[in-house]
Simulated assay, not measured.
Amino acid sequence: MTPTLRTARLVFLPYRPEDEDVFVELLSDEVVCRWMGQERCSEPEIRTIYRSILTDVYGKNLFDVWGVWSDGDYIGHAEIKKTGNVDGHEAIAALVRKHWGQGFGRELVEGLLAYAADTLGVKEVYGMVGAENTASLALCERLGFRHVRDVVSDTGTVTKMLVVSTVNDTPGFS
């Protein structure tokens, strides 16, 4: 069962039925989708994805996924799950565009890393970041991620596979 988590400014809450519209708005933003390395989906497709989080992901306890909030405002989305790219866990994060540049990305990723280390017992976490996403790559570098390899899609898009150790002094939850 996905727990509620807290950092200094953020609350990670399992999604609730009433959060559907903010999730849809986030994944309807083509710039957010581009930086997440995914095609923008139609609203009905996003709503289907959302409902599968509530029924399948939570219902079958497949992995942890949260809506992330600060002072009652939806900041974005976070996940930690086994990755198919390598034998390990991947952190996934997306921020609502109006919250970019406020330090929320760093706090969100640090929170995921602390959870991975403290609760899941994971010794390292992977991330996939688009090669053109300079802001996220710079954040990952500041957090100690190192480059593993480039992954090139069929369309020629390059994604950087990164990894970071969680054994260091990762900031924890309050």
Rank of each mutant, 00 (worst) to 15 (best):
G67K: 07
V68D: 00
V68H: 03
W69K: 12
W69G: 04
W69L: 14
S70L: 02
S70E: 13
D73N: 12
D73V: 13
Y74I: 04
Y74F: 04
Y74D: 04
I75P: 07
G76R: 01
G76V: 11
H77P: 02
A78R: 02
E79M: 13
I80Y: 00
K81S: 05
K81P: 05
K81Y: 08
K82W: 05
K82F: 15
T83S: 07
T83D: 01
N85A: 05
N85D: 15
D87W: 08
G88Q: 05
G88M: 06
H89L: 10
H89Y: 13
H89Q: 11
E90N: 00
A91R: 02
A93K: 13
A93F: 09
A93Q: 03
A94H: 10
L95T: 12
L95I: 14
L95R: 01
V96Y: 08
R97L: 13
R97Y: 02
K98I: 04
K98A: 11
H99S: 08
W100S: 06
G101N: 05
G101K: 11
G101R: 13
G103C: 02
R106H: 09
R106G: 07
E107P: 08
E107Q: 15
E110M: 07
E110F: 00
G111T: 07
L112V: 12
L112D: 01
L113P: 05
A114D: 06
A114M: 04
Y115P: 09
A116V: 01
A116H: 06
A116W: 00
A117K: 10
D118G: 07
T119W: 03
T119F: 09
L120P: 09
G121F: 10
G121N: 09
G121L: 00
V122A: 02
K123R: 11
K123N: 12
K123Y: 02
K123A: 06
E124H: 15
E124I: 13
E124A: 15
E124N: 12
E124C: 05
V125P: 01
V125D: 13
Y126W: 01
Y126K: 04
Y126F: 08
G127Y: 04
M128W: 02
G130Y: 09
G130C: 03
E132F: 14
E132H: 12
N133D: 03
N133T: 12
T134W: 11
T134I: 15
A135D: 14
S136E: 09
S136C: 12
A138Y: 03
L139S: 13
L139Q: 07
L139W: 10
C140H: 08
C140G: 04
E141S: 10
E141N: 09
L143S: 02
L143Y: 01
G144T: 14
G144S: 05
G144F: 04
G144A: 07
F145E: 05
F145R: 07
R146E: 14
H147A: 10
V148F: 00
V148E: 08
R149F: 05
V151L: 04
V151K: 10
D154R: 15
D154A: 09
D154S: 15
D154K: 15
T155Y: 12
T155Q: 08
G156H: 00
T157Q: 12
T157C: 07
V158P: 11
T159L: 14
K160C: 06
K160L: 02
K160D: 02
M161L: 14
L162V: 14
L162T: 15
L162N: 09
